[in-house]
Computed example of a mutant assay.
Amino acid sequence: MNPKQIIQEIVAEKEVDQVVFVGCGASKADLYPAKYFLEQEAKELRAAHFTANEFNYATPVSVDEHTVVISASLGGTTPETVAANRHAQKSGATVVSLTRSVDSPLAKTADYVIYHGFAENYAAKLEKTGYALQLAVELLHQIEGYAHYDSMQEGFEKIYELAQRSAEAAGKSAKKFAERFKDESGIYVMSSGASHEVAYSTSACLMMEMQWLHSGTFHSGEFFHGPFEIVDRDVPFILLMNDGRTRDIDARALAFLERFDAKTEVVDSLDYGLSSHIPAEVLDYFNPFVLTAVFRVYAEELASARQHPLTKRRYMWKLSY
């Protein structure tokens, strides 16, 4: 079943007043654009976003038969997220899970499953984010109605090809970035809007987990409320810059970084033509696709320059924890 059919079936059987997104690490971050979309566009439908184990230990009392829980795990085996599915169902919620692994524990504990790609190409790595966002759009449109539904569908039709082309075009810039940053011991990452947790996963997963680099992440709008005090000449920053309503927030942070000669790498959706392909009224929600695809190339080049494969781990999957 596709997202539209799944939501049609759910809302035909129950009244839905809340959507809760649950995952861990990069999968949690991949759900954020959908949650952000509902926060921005829904008038009555509530949205929440949890790391899975907090959902398990501190399940909101509002989670009940009127709740749809959307969970995600790439391999479908993340123990905390599998447990979250069970917690959600015990509370009466309907669970829709996103994974690439057929018959995985996550799939077996969900009411509905959508299988996505990942390894095929850069566009496939975005399918989890895309399906979550499609589910959110369908929930809003079928429950409240959504004026820009057709524009979102146009965006979905175009974004994967655009993101793939953008990633393929990023190689030269990515190599320059890798050479500039390969000897850093730590890198800060920030963004805003729907891309806020793209910055989070870039920091937590690509930098800390996959490169063993010290890293911190914060919203571009919060930069001036604490983090900017560490700015100095050659302090390394990555700014994932949005094309849309929050661009001025990112631009303000960039101006400060440049003012004090911080070592700044900007990855900008505007440079890859996002606004010339996606309708303006829904532009904000498609930034994460381009930024995620492009920065994956940057991460691959950094890993190569540092001779530290993205697959290398010290603890993950090797110890009991």
Results as ranks from 00 to 15, higher is better:
residue 18 Q to G: 03
residue 52 A to D: 01
residue 130 G to K: 09
residue 204 A to M: 15
residue 56 N to P: 12
residue 108 K to P: 06
residue 243 D to N: 07
residue 75 G to R: 01
residue 123 A to C: 10
residue 302 L to S: 11
residue 75 G to Y: 00
residue 81 T to M: 04
residue 249 I to D: 03
residue 295 F to S: 04
residue 234 D to Q: 15
residue 97 S to K: 00
residue 83 A to K: 01
residue 301 E to D: 06
residue 90 K to T: 13
residue 321 Y to S: 13
residue 27 S to Q: 03
residue 22 V to G: 00
residue 188 Y to G: 00
residue 39 E to R: 14
residue 149 Y to D: 03
residue 216 G to A: 15
residue 262 A to Y: 01
residue 40 Q to M: 13
residue 298 Y to D: 00
residue 218 F to I: 10
residue 269 S to H: 05
residue 251 A to Q: 15
residue 170 A to G: 06
residue 7 I to L: 06
residue 263 K to E: 12
residue 179 E to D: 15
residue 165 R to L: 10
residue 4 K to M: 10
residue 310 L to K: 01
residue 101 S to Y: 08
residue 30 D to C: 12
residue 230 I to C: 08
residue 311 T to P: 01
residue 191 S to W: 05
residue 116 H to A: 07
residue 208 M to E: 12
residue 96 V to D: 02
residue 55 F to K: 01
residue 267 V to R: 02
residue 226 G to H: 09
residue 86 R to W: 08
residue 263 K to T: 07
residue 294 V to T: 08
residue 138 E to L: 03
residue 110 A to W: 01
residue 166 S to T: 05
residue 172 K to Y: 11
residue 45 L to E: 04
residue 43 K to S: 14
residue 246 T to V: 15
residue 144 E to D: 12
residue 169 A to T: 10
residue 308 H to V: 08
residue 189 V to G: 05
residue 247 R to N: 12
residue 283 L to C: 06
residue 156 F to N: 04
residue 3 P to W: 06
residue 9 E to R: 15
residue 19 V to H: 03
residue 79 P to M: 13
residue 146 Y to H: 09
residue 115 Y to V: 07
residue 199 A to N: 04
residue 299 A to H: 02
residue 119 A to V: 12
residue 92 G to W: 10
residue 150 D to F: 06
residue 199 A to K: 01
residue 160 Y to G: 12
residue 44 E to L: 10
residue 305 A to Y: 03
residue 55 F to T: 02
residue 160 Y to C: 09
residue 313 R to N: 06
residue 143 I to R: 01
residue 173 S to I: 10
residue 221 G to M: 02
residue 91 S to T: 12
residue 34 A to R: 05
residue 36 Y to W: 12
residue 7 I to G: 00
residue 291 L to G: 00
residue 19 V to K: 04
residue 260 F to I: 07
residue 95 V to C: 02
residue 99 T to E: 03
residue 300 E to P: 00
residue 307 Q to H: 14
residue 72 A to L: 04
residue 87 H to W: 09
residue 125 K to T: 13
residue 299 A to V: 07
residue 113 V to E: 02
residue 321 Y to E: 13
residue 314 R to K: 14
residue 228 F to Q: 08
residue 149 Y to S: 04
residue 150 D to Y: 06
